[in-house]
């Protein structure tokens, strides 16, 4: 059913801390590893060792440079996966009913046996959260590790999305963003969490926490190369200066 639910009982999602993320891509790899063996078709790679390698990933880390007008530029690592939008445009465009948003927890999923691989949902998503698998020819997307978070066969501490479990910096948080009392909701409130592309009207569930602005304000960049110049002293220093003066 590609009509969106009026409301969902819970709004499970991620909170990603751009201040803490170190850009190590561990979440990308653990996501690929778990989702290749778990829910649905494996995530294919094509020409993996050739000239033009390409592969399906559900989570990717971009790195941006932010340049304030009056301060030096800062680097921000930026993990991006499905935001499980409340008003998910990818779901309503699906002609087959393969895409759906669950009313119980708000997770957006693809029923891969029903997917015709038309690609329209990937067009409808402004975030680029959906990728067509080149081998299976069905649409792949983040499942919020639906086969982990409710899985009673794995230890309780592992019942979070693979990317959250693996992040060595603690930059990824998982929880119910529909519950104002949850840890993730409190984190969003304290740190001023924000939506990506609010102008697209998708009402994303996932939130991002802003990086701290640079505290140190440098008026002019230091010439680092000059610090590495060897300084001659003693006789050599006198010779250096004398030869310099000769022109």
């Amino acid at each position: 059913m590609t009509q969106l639910p009026e409301s969902t009982d819970r709004k499970l999602g991620l909170v990603i801390d751009l201040d803490t993320c170190v850009g190590c891509h561990a979440c990308v790899i653990s996501c690929k590893e778990w989702n290749t063996g778990g829910y649905g078709a494996p995530l294919a790679d094509t020409d993996a060792y050739g000239d033009d390698p390409s592969g399906t990933f559900l989570n990717r880390v971009h790195t941006f440079e932010v340049k304030p007008a009056d301060k030096p530029a800062m680097v921000t690592h930026f993990p991006k996966s499905c935001l499980h939008c409340e008003d998910a445009p990818c779901v309503t465009v699906c002609p087959t009913g393969a895409s759906f948003k669950r009313s119980e927890d708000g997770i957006v999923l693809v029923h891969e046996d029903h997917c015709i691989g038309c690609g329209l949902c990937a067009w409808a998503c402004p975030y680029g959260a959906r990728e067509m698998d080149a081998v299976e020819k069905v649409m792949k997307k983040c499942t919020l590790c639906v086969d982990r978070i409710y899985n009673e066969n794995i230890p309780e501490e592992d019942r979070v999305p693979s990317c959250v479990r693996t992040c060595p910096a603690g930059a990824r948080h998982f929880g119910d963003l529909g519950d104002a009392g949850s840890d993730v909701s409190k984190l969003v409130a304290e740190r001023g969490g924000f939506d990506l592309m609010p102008e697209q009207g998708t009402k994303p569930v996932n939130k991002y926490l802003p990086p701290r602005p640079k505290q140190q304000s440098l008026d002019e960049p230091v010439n680092l190369a000059s610090l590495a110049e060897p300084k001659a002293s003693g006789f050599l220093g006198w010779l250096d200066g004398a030869l310099e003066r000769l022109g």
Partner: peptide, 8 residues
């Protein structure tokens, strides 16, 4: 990116 308030 939501980082527009910080800069370009």
């Amino acid at each position: 990116t939501g980082l527009g308030s910080l800069g370009k």
